[in-house]
């Protein structure tokens, strides 16, 4: 089974930015409660940046890090620690290419027997979404025969 695992710098940066923003807000409100004005010193800002750099990686691993393994019969998809999907190609009957926002592309697989789908975030795996879509179409058709 081929395994694809890539670090997404954009998502990693989002984790860093969100952490820094949250810490900055907390610092500013703490400063307001202590001194009566919204104030962040350079020292606090540097500490916040260091904490954000350290915290970004585990947050990214939990929320965004995508790992996929596949062969001709099935695939396993992990999106962070919060979403794990295992599917057989024969379970799906329709495949589409989707725009997930921020220029990210993915492949959507619709279940044959239920009104649900699985989304493979191809851009996060640094895969060509269009090629992956054609491959998924081929595999779902072959598996359903």
């Amino acid at each position: 089974m081929d395994t694809i695992e890539r670090i997404s710098p954009i998502n990693l940066f989002i984790c860093f930015g969100a952490t820094l923003m949250a810490l900055t807000l907390i610092s500013a409100f703490s400063g307001f409660l202590a001194l009566g004005e919204f104030f962040i010193s350079t020292f606090i800002l540097i500490i916040n940046i260091i904490i954000s750099v350290v915290a970004a990686w585990p947050i990214y691993r939990y929320w965004f890090h995508t790992k996929m393994s596949m062969d001709d019969e099935q695939f396993n998809l992990e999106v962070g620690k919060r979403e794990k999907v295992t599917g057989r190609w024969s379970e799906f009957d329709e495949v589409s290419l989707v725009h997930l926002g921020r220029g990210r592309m993915g492949v959507r697989l619709y279940y044959r027997d239920k009104d649900d789908f699985v989304e493979i975030p191809a851009s996060d795996l640094k895969l060509d979404a269009s090629s992956l879509r054609f491959k998924a179409i081929k595999l779902t058709r072959a598996a359903s025969k």
């Binding site: 329709e94 495949v95 589409s96 290419l97 989707v98 725009h99 959507r108 879509r133 179409i137």
Partner: peptide
């Protein structure tokens, strides 16, 4: 460019 007209999100073949 077509995103100026509509937010096309899903493509079926």
């Amino acid at each position: 460019k077509a995103r100026w007209v509509a937010d096309f999100t899903e493509s079926f073949r």
